[in-house]
Simulated assay, not measured.
Amino acid sequence: MAQSSIRPKLFWVSAAAPLTSVIISTIISFISRTHEKGISTIGFLPEGVNPSSVSMLHFKGPHSNLALKTGMVTGLLALTEAIAVGRTFASMKNYQIDGNKEMVAVGAMNMAGSCVSCYVTSGGFARSAINFNAGCKTAASNIIMASVVLFTMLLLMPLFHYTPNVILSAIIISAVIGLIDVRGAILLWKVDKFDFVACMSAFLGVLLISVPIGLIISVGISVLKILFHVTRPNIAVMGNIPGTNSYRNLAQYKEATRMPSFLILGIESPVYFTNSVYLQERILRWIREEEERITNSKESPLKCIILDMAGKWC
């Protein structure tokens, strides 16, 4: 794969590597009878596609409420995973994805799949990584892949009886491991520790448990971060940038200067009932600290306090 990325003309090397690995490992497994020596293989797989199950769809019954709750949770996780996977590869290739279109696509696929007893459809991270590393760039690759899968299900399923499961794991690992962005994680640690915790929670959750659990953990931490910022918004003392009408955070802009007799506080979040008490305590603390600073430096006394609620002072 590294060779094909250095030499674009050799893209077929990474594209053919997974299939070649499966063929060679299957032949070796068949000749040496590795399944008789304790090595796990795929085993028997029935041919053909699932028959229509439209007649089996029931919208009323003793289990309808449970099915509705399970479907809502499963659908939310599937949609979250699909958008997360899409944005991961979109950021690598600098293109945009539309969350609404992703929602429509995932919903349409699952509605169609429910008519033939399919599993929940989502944007598989491992399959997308393999597709990406094979050099696929357009949606035509999905059409070709679906056609090959259909052809395989109809005619070639018995050939995978002796395919070792370990080779499938190796293909997935080799495709996914290149997507780990260590530099991005280090930068995230320097910029925002809370986001780094969410990132590592998602990574470890997916790695050690499963993709849905990892997403649930990361989404939960992100929601907690939002609630934390809403209930405990950041407050900063602002100063004037010399020669301009702009006021910026004194801690971030060293050239900014205080206005005599004025205390200008920038509040990053609107005032809600959840953060009103906290803001009151913090503002009073800033006033006391400012009065102490003025007394020690023998400056003009504090006369006015200005609260900037725009939230654009960073």
Rank of each mutant, 00 (worst) to 15 (best):
S5P: 06
S5Y: 13
R7S: 04
L10V: 13
T20I: 01
T20M: 02
I23F: 01
I27K: 10
I28F: 09
I28H: 10
K37Q: 12
G38H: 08
I39Q: 12
G43C: 09
N50P: 02
S52A: 07
G61W: 13
N65W: 14
L66Q: 09
T70Y: 01
V73T: 04
A78P: 00
E81D: 10
G86M: 05
F89R: 13
A90T: 02
A105L: 10
G107R: 03
M109R: 05
A112Q: 07
V116P: 05
V116F: 13
C118W: 06
C118M: 12
V120G: 03
G124V: 15
F132Y: 07
F132Q: 05
A134I: 06
G135D: 09
G135I: 15
C136S: 10
K137M: 09
I143K: 10
A146L: 08
S147V: 03
Y162R: 12
N165W: 10
V166Q: 14
I167L: 06
L168G: 07
V176I: 15
I177L: 15
R183I: 14
K193T: 08
V197D: 15
A198K: 04
M200F: 05
F203R: 00
L204H: 08
I209E: 00
I209Q: 01
V211R: 07
L215N: 11
I216P: 05
I217L: 14
S218I: 00
V223R: 04
R232C: 05
G239K: 09
K254S: 04
T257E: 15
S261K: 02
L263M: 02
L265P: 00
G266D: 03
P270L: 15
Y272M: 09
L279A: 01
W286F: 11
R288Q: 06
E290H: 10
E292T: 07
I294K: 06
L302N: 07
L307P: 01
